[in-house]
């Protein structure tokens, strides 16, 4: 299953490293990253593959959310299908 992870918040050192380390620890493969900083605001979208991840989707998503709260960032993970449905015919 593929999902989109979005990270939004105030920029600081090591956000990508932190999120990627966690994802790799759960065996979630990062397929693509797109990141920008606008007026000090960090915005990143990642396409990830949960094929080899043994943790349930809900759990991964919740762990990311909690980590986001610790870092004062909004982190969420949603299945790719929802974006495909809304933006691709």
């Amino acid at each position: 299953m593929r999902a989109i992870v979005t990270v939004v918040g105030k920029d600081r050192v090591g956000i990508i490293a932190d999120v990627c380390t966690r994802l790799s620890g759960w065996n979630v493969n990062v397929l693509d990253i797109n990141q920008t900083v606008m007026q000090g605001n960090f915005a990143m979208t990642m396409l990830v593959d949960l094929e080899k991840c043994e943790m349930p989707f809900r759990e991964v998503s919740e762990q990311l959310r909690l980590r986001g709260e610790e870092m004062k960032l909004s982190i969420r993970m949603q299945r790719e299908d929802i974006f495909e449905a809304m933006h691709r015919v």
Binding site: I4, T6, L31, D32, N34, T36, A43, T45, L47, R76, E80, I82, F83, E84, M86, H87, R88
Partner: peptide
């Protein structure tokens, strides 16, 4: 891949 603009548009 879905573009960043499309992703954030959906989130908004």
């Amino acid at each position: 891949m879905i573009s960043r603009r499309e992703i954030f548009e959906t989130l908004e």
